[in-house]
Amino acid sequence: MKKVIELDNIRRDFQVGEEVVHALRGVSFSITEGEFVTIMGTSGSGKSTLLNTLGCLDTPTKGEYYLDGISVRTMTKSERAVLRNRKIGFVFQNYNLLPKTTAVENVELPLMYNTAVSAKERRKRAIDALMAVGLGDRLEHKSNQMSGGQMQRVAIARALVNDPAVILADEATGNLDTRTSFEILVLFQKLHAEGRTIIFVTHNPDIARYSSRNIRLRDGKVIEDTYNTNIQSAAEQLAQLPKNDEE
């Protein structure tokens, strides 16, 4: 299988006043195409730094990072922006949708920064992505007219629209209630089943049960890297949940 992500002894140091903080102290692993990896760790474990590095928002102090075979470490800011645009789909905890903007316009956003995509194709791909996350009937809804779950679906559609090599989710269920969290997990499992590569960064250990692989970080090092042989179905869990009173 093709290696989508390859980390080789990644170190990241931050200068905080006089002191040097070692956020990552030699992290090495690789992720092949089609994996659903959860990355866990308590706060201060280097989780966020690792996510920023994987997302090409930050460059490591030492070590090599290959994203889809491309070396990221020596790239300029602009080159990394273009790389993010083509290879990465972000899903954030607080959705980060553009305010007062329709779902379809939000999803179109990454393609607005890709000159190769025409306006017509952009609209078509945005609509396809929204259909894929089950929001085909809410294309023209504005971001402030949607629920948290719907907003996160729009955000996932936005992450899918550029057909990325990897989807990076940062606590993507952190702001949602249990039921909606499971709905989002069902969606991630569906994308996984379709062959997408997903990295899900979280501090919630339960989520590891639904992924194919779990990496644990502590003090800037990988302390555990296990493959999940018994992947549970989020859809089944969702079915067992008691229905909300309101519904």
Partner: peptide, 16 residues
């Protein structure tokens, strides 16, 4: 600021 951060994370360069 958040909007700018988002635009950058989906691939907007500084010049954009």
């Amino acid at each position: 600021t958040r909007e700018i951060g988002l635009r950058m994370s989906v691939g907007a360069r500084g010049v954009d």
